[in-house]
Design a binder for these strands. Structure first.
Length: 221
DNA sequence: GTCCTGGTGG
DNA sequence: CCACCTGGAC
């Protein structure tokens, strides 16, 4: 471990440390149970978390018992999650996940596979794509993966790090240069989302940005 | 590229 | 009024 940093680009860990200094520990994912993580991950697809919170509240009685949620008619489920937008497709996606989950008796502990196998299995579920699969892997199963979402892409690009075009290439690049540690990757994603929501938005607020002194963007525009 | 969609903030 | 939101399928 002494030479861990060999061939590594230390800008990734430096950025992490800077964000951690600024925002502190994020204590993610915001959910009471692992099942709630999955539901939140599906509901938040292309949607602001604020709109997801209401849906989560309405679903609360079912979230401690996935089986009960599985018994709901899909239309009823759709109405419960209306506030999250795309509610019909998302109801289908939750149903698809529940069908997969049923073969494990709705127990995450019964899902015993290595990360790559589990990842492929999750990706086969209709409505679970790269990002949602990685959220589940990291925040439910504690598999050390980097969630290569839009915030990460935007922040890294502005920061001055070259970002590959595809999700997978991007994910693997970060995983090469950053410690393969689920706790650190957990915190990294959370910090990137917080930073992205607060300053590094589509229209960034660079003047007030707490990391502007180490960001390349101040030179380009 | 287009569709899916309500809620929030500008 | 409009633009955008921690995507994914087709």
């Amino acid at each position: 471990m002494k030479n861990w940093k060999k061939n590594k680009d230390n800008r990734y860990i430096n950025l992490f440390e800077k964000l951690y200094d600024v925002y502190g520990p994020q204590k993610w994912w915001p959910a009471d149970t692992p099942f709630e993580v999955v539901i939140g991950a599906i509901l938040v697809q292309n949607t602001s978390w604020k709109n997801v919170e209401r849906s989560i509240k309405r679903l609360k009685p079912y979230l401690s018992h996935p089986k009960k949620l599985a018994q709901l008619p899909e239309e009823t489920l759709a109405q419960l999650i209306r506030s999250s937008g795309f509610y019909r497709v998302k109801a289908k996606r939750i149903s698809a996940f529940l069908r997969w989950f049923q073969q494990y008796d709705y127990e995450f502990d019964r899902v015993k596979k290595d990360g790559e196998k589990l990842r492929n299995e999750l990706l086969e579920i209709n409505g679970i794509g790269n990002e949602t699969a990685d959220v589940i892997l990291l925040y439910v199963f504690h598999v050390p993966v980097f969630i290569a979402d839009r915030y990460a892409r935007t922040i890294f690009q502005r920061f001055g790090i070259h970002v590959p075009p595809t999700y997978e290439e991007f994910r693997k690049q970060v995983e090469f240069h950053f410690p393969k540690d689920a706790i650190l990757l957990n915190e990294f994603h959370a910090l990137l989302v917080t930073h992205g929501k607060t300053y590094c938005k589509k229209k960034p607020i660079c003047e007030k940005c707490p990391i502007q002194n180490i960001c390349q963007r101040r030179f380009t525009s």
